[in-house]
Design a protein around this nucleic acid. Structure first.
Ligand code: ZN
Length: 508
DNA sequence: CGACTTTGACCCGCGC
DNA sequence: GCGCGGGTCAAAGTCG
């Protein structure tokens, strides 16, 4: 009803979006491929800043002043005046040098930042490669993969093949064709990570209309016990990220273009759930669901799913990176062991508990899909603590992970800040912000208690690295702005934060 | 006229 | 087998 006020009369203009990141302008600017670093350096060059550390002259002049001051009784007032003028000039010069110094520091910081980013990205990439190698080593999966790639009927095998590649867009070129192939292949149903779950409908549609094939039963994602590897893949495929934010608007402004393709009344929630599809790309598989929280209708729950197969504007990258980071964390933390779908996160995130820290992440095995909820409805995050998200369930394995939570929190905040900055076309600040972010995560920083945990727990490091990589990817790979966000459509239920979701208490 | 929203219908999986 | 709920499609209508 009015929960989702998108009343048609209200219309497009009325379809007011909460300017979540203040990116309305940036979204249109769409400079996703711009490298802030370069811009700033260019600016410095244009300004003709003298980058030489030429500070000796000033010292000499000062000494001269001192010497002349020693003969003060001899000097006349005019000489005093001259000295004063000299002093003033020298001070001005010193100030100028200071400014230059600061500029140099900035540049240095940027370079350091870039270096760190590249390192993180590289490490993440290597990790992903390792994972992929593992996948390829699995003959069964390989077989399935081939079947899918060739468009052959895979029978009832439901082994999911594709994994979410949060940081690389290597698949992007193949996405469309793969998708079509997969959709033609009914039996395999959920081959594509983007459409899994929903692919059934789409498959059905195309099959019925185009091929008229008999619809072989599409095995459910969780159908049947699979080897750990498969479960891992499935977990990755089904990772979802939803964002909770207080907004009176009907939709969050995330920089992307969305087309509404459906609306349903969800059970247990008087407010309808709207379905949107990304229209920035011709066949972008990314979808999102928007729904108001039943308990608190001022809270808007936006769930992203899928991976963009097209370049994103900077404004959209912020959100995509955020969700991607969350998904990465989820993927990294949801390595299934045995039949427990979510056993891994327990080890990863619940290792340490900081009293008073708001619960940032929750996961429940009861959830149909691994879901990360980025909770932006809470007060700003402070490592010292804060009120827990209203909807967090205590029983989830992710309930306690101060280090990672805080790190991710910072990352997400950074992403959000980045987007805000992008909207202001202030790349410089964005860079600085990013640098600060990395500094916080770096071992050299002394602010977080999370450092120790990061250093001690490789899993944690991996998770954070994956999360960082997706954000860093913005600056490192401007042209591959493929936001990978697997979000959850909160299909578990329409309530605010159902159990089974991972929720990252994120405050902005 | 193109892009978009609305909305009813349809399909699917799942539980009983 | 049936009903329910989630997700999607597509025709119709609206807007710029
Ligand atoms: Zn897209």
């Amino acid at each position: 009803m009015e929960c989702h006020e998108g009343g048609y009369k209200a219309k497009r203009v009325v379809l007011k979006e909460m300017d979540f990141f203040g990116t309305s302008n940036a979204a249109k600017a769409g400079g996703g491929d711009k490298r802030p670093e370069v811009v700033e350096l260019d600016d410095d060059i244009k300004l003709g800043i003298d980058t030489r550390l030429d500070l000796g002259i000033t010292q000499t002049d000062i000494d001269e002043d001192k010497a002349s001051a020693g003969h003060g009784e001899v000097l006349s007032h005019t000489e005093d005046k001259q000295t004063a003028e000299k002093l003033a000039i020298l001070r001005a010069e010193v100030e100028q040098k200071n400014v230059e110094n600061q500029n140099l520091k900035k540049i240095l910081g940027q370079v350091t930042n870039n270096y760190t980013s590249l390192r993180m990205h590289l490490s993440t990439f290597l990790q992903q490669q390792q994972q992929q190698n593992k996948v390829y080593q699995n003959p069964i999966k390989e077989c399935n993969r081939d079947k899918m790639a060739n468009g052959q009927d895979g029978g009832n095998e439901s082994t999911p093949i594709q994994m979410i590649d949060c940081s690389s867009g290597s698949r992007d070129n193949q996405d469309n064709s793969k998708e079509r192939l997969k959709r033609k292949i009914n039996g395999l149903g959920e081959c594509d990570e983007d459409d899994r779950g929903k692919s059934s409908s789409m498959n059905r549609q195309e099959d019925c209309t185009k091929q008229g094939q008999e619809r072989t039963k599409i095995p459910r994602l969780n159908g049947g016990p699979e080897e750990g590897e498969s479960q891992h893949e499935m977990t990755m495929r089904r990772a979802r990220v939803s964002v909770r934010a207080r907004s009176e608007a009907s939709m969050i402004s995330d920089g992307c273009q969305w087309r509404k393709y459906g609306q349903k009344m969800a059970k247990g929630n008087p407010c309808p759930r709207a379905y949107y599809r990304c229209t920035m790309g011709t066949s972008c598989p990314v979808r999102k669901q928007v729904q108001r929280c039943a308990e608190d209708k001022s809270i808007l729950i936006t769930t992203y799913e899928g991976q963009h197969n097209h370049p994103l504007p900077a404004a959209a990258m912020a959100m995509a990176s955020t969700t991607s980071a969350a998904a990465s964390m989820l993927v990294a933390g949801t390595m299934p062991s045995g039949d427990g779908i979510m056993s891994y996160p327990t080890n990863l995130l619940s290792r340490t508990i900081l009293p008073g820290l708001p619960t940032l992440a929750t996961i429940s095995a009861s959830a149909p899909f691994p879901t990360i909820t980025l909770d932006l409805t809470n007060p700003p995050p402070t490592p010292s603590g804060g009120p827990p998200p209203p909807n967090n369930t205590n029983n989830s394995p992710f309930a306690n992970g101060p280090q990672l939570n805080f790190a991710l929190q910072q990352l997400l905040r950074q992403a959000l800040n980045n987007q805000t900055r992008v909207s202001n076309t202030d790349n410089h600040q964005q860079q600085q912000q990013q640098r600060v972010q990395i500094d916080e995560l770096s071992p050299s920083s002394s602010n977080n208690g999370s450092q120790a945990a990061l250093a001690a727990d490789p899993n944690l490091v991996r998770a954070v690295a994956a999360a960082i990589s997706s954000i860093i990817g913005n600056s490192v790979q401007p042209q591959d702005n493929y936001g990978s966000s697997d979000n959850n459509a909160t299909n578990s239920s329409s309530t605010c934060n159902v159990e089974g979701n991972t929720s990252l208490g994120l405050t902005n």
